[in-house]
Structures are given as C-alpha cells and as structure tokens.
Amino acid sequence: MLDAPARNLLAAPLDAVAARIDRRWVTPDRVTMAGLVLGLAAAGAAALSWWGVALALWLISRLADGLDGPLARRRRASGLDTTSGDAGGFLDITADFAVYGAFVLGVGIGWGGSMLPFLTVLLAYYINGTAFLAFSSIAERSGRRLDDGRSLSFLGGLAEGTETIIVHSVWVLAPAAAGPVAWVWAGLVLLSGGHRMVVGYRILRAPAARATGSEV
C-alpha cells in the first residue's frame, strides 16, 4: 500500500546516492549481494537478541536493496550494462525472499516466546510470494504485464515492501512486543495475499487489452 508513495519520495535521494557510488567495481548485482549478506547478518543478530545490531544491519541491508535498481538503471542509461537486467531482477527478488524469511526466523528465535506467530508470518509470506510470482509469470506470457519500472509485475496490496521494512524494524525496536505485533502483521499479510489472489485472477480472466492493472 505504501510502496508507490515511498518510491516517489525516495527516488531522488536514491538516485543521488547511486550516482555517488557508481564505480566500475560497484555493480548492481554486487549491491544486491551486499544487501543479502547484511540482511542475513541482521537475522543472525536478532536470533542472538542483539537488537541494536540487528536494527542497524537490517536498515543498511534495505538501503542496499533500494540502491541496486537505481544503479542498474543508471548503468543501462549510460550504455555500460545492457544485458543483465533480467538476471539482476531475478537475483534481487530471490535475495529479498531470503532476507525476509531469515529475519522472521531470527526474531522468532531471539524474542524468547512462542514461534507460532512468526511461523504464521512465514506462511503468509509464502502465500503472498506464490500469488505475485505466479501472476507475474503468467501476466508476462499472456500480454498482461503491469509495468511500474520494476522487473516483475507487482500486484499492490495492504502489505508491501515498505510495510515489511517498518514492521520488521518495530520487532527489533520493541522485542518484548514482537510476538503480538507478528500476529497482527500475519493477519494483514494473509488478507493482502487473499486480495492478490482475487485481483490477479480477475486480471488474468480479462482480455489482454483491458488488463491495465486498474483493478489493483
């Protein structure tokens, strides 16, 4: 729900940072991998209940995740990289799933209470991931692509990347409340997953010329 306004708000600052780090050896894929490593380290810190370290690593990893796209577009515009867009998009979404899942598991271990709310969050992530990845693949093949500048066709919802960053940050800022927050978050993500299933089905049933994404 907040991804579109967040992208509009952060586009100029991220482009400026991408311009500052644009060096031959700083490739978009390496930035993606740095985000992956930092995100997994954040999950490990959370599992050890090193909450301040986990928060810092988590936010830096998400900054890296936000920079790989602007850097890739900058490289393509300059003609330095015209071949790795699809591969980079694949690497980016795979890294995101790995980091999100690992961080949920890390917080679930570190907070010291029941793992059930965090396992429910993982189930909700699984349903959402299945819905939007399946939709993106079929929409691409059938001429119903939703193009917002990203590598995949993303169906909007109540729970998107921006909300995920915020909620995961809240977990490590207030670890004593992590379990109850996880229950609420799991409910929202499950609701969002159901919404994506319905909207995706409707878009794919519509004639390709009419599938503009206006139902999202």
Rank of each mutant, 00 (worst) to 15 (best):
M1E: 12
A6Q: 05
L10T: 01
P13F: 12
D15Y: 01
R23A: 05
T27H: 02
P28E: 06
T32R: 01
T32I: 00
M33R: 00
A34K: 05
L38A: 10
L38Y: 08
L38N: 06
L40S: 12
A43Q: 12
A46I: 06
A47E: 13
W51N: 00
W58A: 11
S61E: 09
A64P: 01
G69A: 07
L71G: 06
R75M: 04
A77I: 04
L80Q: 13
T82W: 03
G88D: 02
G89V: 05
D92A: 10
Y100E: 07
V107T: 02
W111H: 09
S114L: 14
A124K: 07
T130W: 15
A131C: 10
L133Q: 14
S137W: 11
S142K: 11
S142L: 09
G143W: 02
G143F: 05
R144F: 07
D148M: 09
R150E: 13
F154A: 09
F154V: 10
L158A: 15
E160F: 00
E163N: 08
S169Q: 13
V170F: 11
W171V: 02
P175K: 03
A176I: 05
A177K: 03
A182P: 03
G187R: 11
G187I: 10
M197D: 03
V198Y: 14
L204R: 13
T212A: 01
S214E: 15
